[in-house]
Design a protein around this nucleic acid. Structure first.
Length: 1130
RNA sequence: GCCCAGGUGGUGGAACUGGUAGACACGCAGGACUUAAAAUCCUGUGAUAGUAAUAUCGUGCGGGUUCGAUUCCCGCCUUGGGCACCA
């Protein structure tokens, strides 16, 4: 047959047509109303080629893009390459082929494979992360972070993979192993670059609320950020000025603290070294911990640790002396690396206490004891309410009644055993008095009748009362009804172990009572405070509020929010990545400097933090000069500057530390000196003239307050500005201004008191000591990744050994300066690629503000769920930084985000060479055609679901497309059929709705139904066939373009309007109504669609089948659901 | 251990807001065409009973609410995923 469906031929034809005519070039004229940015996730161009999973992502995005074009949207769709990374480098090590060569080859292969799918992207905008015109901007982003105080270098324990010889981010460690090579990850102390993503923890958390993302994804990010509210509490160390600060989410249990634990890596341990009597033993333990891998620490269930002898901690609330331990169950990286241990209410502390035989002090009672009714539903139990409840005994399947009888003769409580009364009798009597049940049968005593740790809130009476739990059976005939009624009004026993359950299992009650008593278990549920002085009788929430108030008032601690999120380690000791555009000078790091402190308004040379800072710097061998400047209460900038000029010589060894009004003095000073200074640390500096306008009266305004910042800038290469997170005096926008004119780095910190007036502020010391690091000037970007490199991993960065990379650096940037040899994590490249797509050829900016305004944010993003806590978080972080830096006016990059599911092999296992179940999409294209692959992949199931490949399913789809192709023989211009119209328009309606929601599988099913119907028809009108082609075109573009052309159209159908269904054509005049009798469908009746309820009722009741079912019965009720069913209740 | 999402024919999956469960596809069975096979087309296809009309059962299990539950509530089982000594 000549006119046979030949996908290979027509697909090639149309792909060439689209390319030649630039059909999918990005539209230039767009508005925020009609722009539509569709983003398929950035692929890593692996050497093994395209995977069916890639095809799924591109097809889904492409269908959506084509659909949106037909809805008259202006679509931006681009594909690029995440082309830096380890696999290419590992391949290079094995084969000695340069990664650039293998990567470019892999990209060419990928590109042609993607093109063969008929994806409608603008190929002129393709980008590759490994190209210098791309990574120039990756480097630029790093500098942006650095200048905003968000990139820092720090020596600390990092995840090290011996297999890859590199550092890994937390996100790249899976179950203690490297995600790539599955080598066990070890901890290693290394100096690394970090991005301060933790500064954005709160913004990243809050931003989630307004995103149209899968709920689960949002939740996972939330969990990963891990915000927890609590308090920081200071514990003094007896006979020492040192203190241990801990973070706790349960400050309410402070009275139950019986020991403290420090992480082995904790610095406090080193600081206290001299006082520790058993240092050798402690040190041995620390060393032992270092050797353990993450995995070991996780697997080991048994608690280990060492008591630190010679020092004790003092519990701030009751001044009790408690022992201090070091143990590896406390993590150095979370909170302060130290904990207060409450063994009675924390399982880990409990295990530790058991092992080391430590005191366990209960401060929370699981339920309250009292004498009246249980609380009404929705109300909490109070201490006035009796402990008695209905319980359900699973074993005997009986509803029982649990009653606690007070057997403490002397206790000041109601009830209790009266003289000559047995326990049983007392119980019965109390039940009668309190609950009104007359017929109760004693079953047995459950639990010990000894001391139960219940608290009774009689004034100032901390006695423990003795209760005996007794079990009764209600033998009233209406027992169960009573129980049910009770449960309707009252909530079940407030026993946290069984919270939320209607009935309490008797056995659990018994066990919990016994165990609590013997302290064999630790109680971590809800309850009421006991043994806690002024917190007694409060519930947990109330107690938390009260204790935090108390701590803050007494200066013993403060409210604190802690995050699980850690800073992002971005440096890699590998070759195939973007170079870090920084310079390092080892000499400057260890050099001794002359520090000059310049104080602010109404202060003194050693005021505020300066006394402490001087001490710290001198301890490290530096010189510190301080002055009490003249007229500090009405300062005159010129006068103060001259004072300093007369008494101090600034030179290249000088580091100026200026606070507040010391800022302007510093600018004047720098204007006047001839030499450059080493560094200027501006701590919350005043910025003229903005500040003067506000605080005119505070200063002597005879100075002009105009500064030549261009001149000032030239006197130092290393300005840093420290600002407060919540500015109180100097505002952020003032500091931003200063940052710009001085090209300074700005660091926003969170000082303990306002305007950096604390006596100790670690961030200032940190900045004072941070030397020997400077950024490569922006104009020198990109730092080119050299080619003369030996790839062999040595643990040292390969760039160390590149001649061209290190040549001439000292000449260019000064003696002693060297290039940072590490490269950036590839996640940095993929954190901003969606911005580059907007303006890929721009060599002035990462993207022009015009383009950013026009296209962002992304309207639809499709990517794998594996990137939830990596890429998706980083991309949001980058965007928020850009927002704060004023580059963009939105702070979330992806409005809508969805994840595709995994395509499994035909055996329902993950596709892998190991199982031999890999399906190559290109094979499928070659055999069945791209349209078949596209439609099949979408027909398999919902986009988000994991689904197995089925070779026969592919054939079924091919059959469907063939049927559509063959329908052209039935076209008849004059023909018309109302029935066909109806089905076409119904399908149109459904397909439109489904494409909108990306429910491709059901849309395809509906079109299959349509083609099955049309196949049975003699003829089809041309109009109806066109409608069918148009609605199928986003899914099978090649086939439909060909058919469209055969119908005589000259242009591509890509921009045809999406056909709207005609509502008048889908009206049914006869409808089928289901007739239910007692909820079961017995028959269907056909009625006119305009029939009213009584007509239907009449017709239904006349039906033979219905008659049969209702015969001799009384009709109680008839329910009619419009156009659907009629339910008759008899 | 904690958290989340699922569990529907032989299979992948459909089912609007509580309203005829199993659309569509695969597979299977029977038939047509063919010397034959493939391809294609037609018919049937949840289980049980029955020639059939039809009836009963049926959405992981056990209960509940309702005229009516895959859908809502309670309890349990199970699969997959995430986090994991996070104080």
């Amino acid at each position: 047959m000549e006119n046979k469906y030949n996908p290979q031929k027509i697909e090639k034809k149309w792909q060439e047509y689209w390319e030649k005519n630039k059909t999918f070039e990005t539209p230039k004229k767009v508005s925020i109303y009609n722009k539509f940015y569709i983003l398929p996730q950035l692929p890593y161009p692996s050497g093994s080629g395209l995977h069916v999973g890639h095809a799924e992502v591109y097809t889904a995005c492409d269908i959506f893009a084509r659909y949106q074009r037909m809805k008259e949207k202006k679509v931006l769709q681009v594909i690029g390459w995440d082309s830096f990374g380890l696999p290419a480098e590992n391949y290079a090590i094995k084969t000695n082929i340069h990664p650039r060569i293998s990567t470019d080859k892999a990209i060419d292969n990928f590109r042609s494979q993607i093109k063969s799918l008929g994806i409608s992207v603008d190929w002129d905008r393709e980008v590759g992360a490994h190209n210098s015109n791309y990574y120039k901007w990756t480097e630029w982003f790093f500098l942006l972070m650095y200048k905003r105080g968000l990139a820092y270098r720090k020596k600390q324990a990092v995840n090290w993979c011996e297999g890859c010889k590199t550092v890994l981010a937390n996100e790249q460690v899976v179950e203690g192993k490297c995600e790539r090579c599955e080598t066990e990850v070890v901890q290693k102390e290394m100096e690394q670059w970090y991005l301060k993503i933790t500064d954005y923890a709160d913004k990243l958390l809050q931003g989630l609320d307004n995103l149209d993302w899968p709920e689960e994804t949002k939740k996972r990010q939330k969990d990963w950020i891990g915000r927890s509210e609590g308090a920081e509490v200071d514990f003094k160390i007896s006979g020492s000025t040192e203190k241990i600060t801990v973070f706790t989410t349960r400050p309410d249990t402070l009275f139950g603290v019986t020991f403290m634990v420090l992480a082995p890596e904790s610095k406090i341990l080193q600081n206290l070294r001299k006082k520790i009597e058993n240092w050798q033993e402690v040190e041995k333990y620390i060393e032992k911990t270092k050797l353990k891998t993450e995995l070991d620490r996780q697997i080991e269930k048994e608690k280990t640790g060492v008591e630190i002898k010679g020092i004790k901690a003092i519990n701030p609330v009751n001044n009790e002396e408690i022992p201090i331990f070091t143990a590896d169950y406390v993590l150095a990286g979370y909170g302060t690396g130290a904990i207060m241990a409450v063994p009675a209410h924390d399982e880990r502390d409990f295990d530790f206490a058991k092992k080391f035989d430590l005191k366990i002090k209960q401060v929370i009672a699981p339920f309250r004891v009292s004498e009246s009714d249980p609380p009404k539903k929705g109300k909490k139990w109070t201490h006035r309410q009796a402990v008695e409840c209905h319980v359900y005994d699973k074993k005997t399947d009986k509803y029982l009644f649990l009653k606690y009888v007070n057997v403490n003769w002397n206790a000041v409580v109601t009830g209790g055993i009266e003289e000559n009364e047995t326990l049983e009798e007392a119980g019965k009597r109390e039940i009668l008095e309190e609950s009104g049940y007359k017929n109760v049968k004693f079953i047995r005593q459950i639990g010990a009748s000894k001391r139960v740790n219940f608290y009774h809130p009689v004034k100032d009476d901390n006695r423990k009362l003795i209760f005996t739990p007794l079990l009764f059976e209600l033998i009233n005939e209406e027992r169960e009804k009573i129980v049910e009624e009770e449960l309707k009004i009252h909530q079940p026993l407030w026993l946290s172990l069984e919270e939320g359950k209607k009935f309490v299992n008797v056995d659990n009650v018994v066990d919990s009572l016994k165990d609590l008593e013997k302290n064999n278990y630790c109680f971590a549920g809800d309850g009421v405070l006991i043994n806690s002085d002024f917190l007694n009788d409060l519930d947990i929430k109330e107690a938390q509020e009260k204790i935090i108030e108390f701590l803050e008032e007494k200066g013993l601690g403060k409210r604190k929010i802690q995050y699980k999120l850690r800073d992002w380690s971005v440096s890699r000791q590998r070759f195939w990545g973007a170079p870090i555009p920084m310079l390092i000078n080892e000499e400057l790091k260890t050099k001794k400097y002359n520090y000059l402190f310049i104080h602010g308004f109404s202060s003194t040379g050693l005021g505020n933090f300066r006394k402490w800072l001087k001490q710290e710097l001198e301890n490290r061998g530096h010189n510190v000069t301080t002055f009490d400047l003249p007229n500090t209460d009405k300062p005159n900038v010129i006068e103060q500057t001259n004072y300093i000029l007369n008494n101090f010589n600034c030179d290249e060894n000088t580091i100026i530390v200026a606070h507040s009004l010391g800022g302007p003095v510093t600018y004047r000073l720098l204007e006047k000196i001839n030499k450059k200074v080493a560094k200027v640390v501006l701590v919350d500096p005043v910025v003229f003239p903005e500040f003067v306008d506000r605080e005119r009266s505070a200063v002597d305004t005879s100075d002009s307050f105009k500064f030549d910042f261009e001149l000032v800038k030239n006197k130092c290469d290393d300005f840093v500005i420290l600002g407060e997170k919540n500015p109180s005096v100097i505002f952020r926008k003032d500091l931003e201004y200063l940052r710009n004119v001085l090209d300074a780095r700005i660091v926003i910190t969170n000082p303990t008191t306002e305007h950096f007036c604390a006596f100790e502020e670690p961030s200032i010391l940190e900045e004072c000591l941070l030397l020997g690091i400077k950024p490569i000037p922006e104009k020198d970007l990109p730092v080119i990744l050299p080619d003369d490199v030996d790839f062999k991993p040595t643990g040292q960065s390969p760039l160390n050994y590149s001649k061209s990379f290190n040549e001439g650096i000292e000449k260019k940037y000064g003696n002693g300066w060297k290039r940072e040899p590490d490269t950036l994590d590839t996640f940095m490249c993929s954190s901003w690629y969606y911005y580059r797509y907007l303006d890929p050829h721009n060599d002035k900016e990462f993207a022009s503000s015009e383009m950013l305004k026009k296209w962002m944010p992304v309207d639809f993003y499709l990517g794998g769920p594996e990137h939830v806590n990596g890429h998706l978080l980083y991309a949001r972080f980058f965007t928020k930084v850009l927002f704060d830096a004023g580059y963009i006016d939105f702070d979330e990059p992806f409005k809508v985000n969805r994840h595709q599911g995994l395509i499994l092999g035909p055996d329902s296992r993950k596709m892998s060479k190991r199982w031999g179940n890999v399906i190559n999409p290109t094979d499928v294209v070659n055999e069945y055609g791209a349209d078949t692959l596209r439609v099949y992949e979408m027909f398999m199931g919902p986009l988000e679901a994991d689904k197995p490949w089925d070779t026969n399913g592919v054939k079924g789809v091919k059959r469907f497309l063939e049927k559509v192709w063959n329908l052209q023989e039935k076209i008849s211009k004059k023909f018309s059929s109302e029935e066909t119209d109806k089905i076409i328009h119904k399908t149109l309606k459904k397909v439109g709705e489904d494409l909108e929601k990306m429910q491709f599988n059901t849309a395809i099913a509906k079109m299959m139904e349509l083609s099955n119907f049309l196949q049975k028809q003699e003829k089809i009108s041309e109009k109806n066939f066109e409608l069918f082609i148009l609605m199928l075109s986003p899914l099978a573009p090649h086939l439909t373009e060909e058919l469209w052309q055969k119908l005589g159209h000259k242009n591509t159908l890509s921009f045809e309007n999406w056909p709207l269904f005609d509502p008048t054509k889908i009206i049914e005049n006869k409808i089928l109504i289901a007739i239910q009798i007692n909820g079961k469908v017995r028959t269907n009746i056909e009625i006119n669609s305009d029939a009213n309820e009584s007509e239907i009722e009449k017709k239904a009741l006349a039906d033979e089948n219905v008659k049969k079912w209702i015969e001799g019965k009384e009709i109680k009720k008839i329910i009619y659901i419009k156009d659907k069913l009629l339910s008759i209740v008899v």
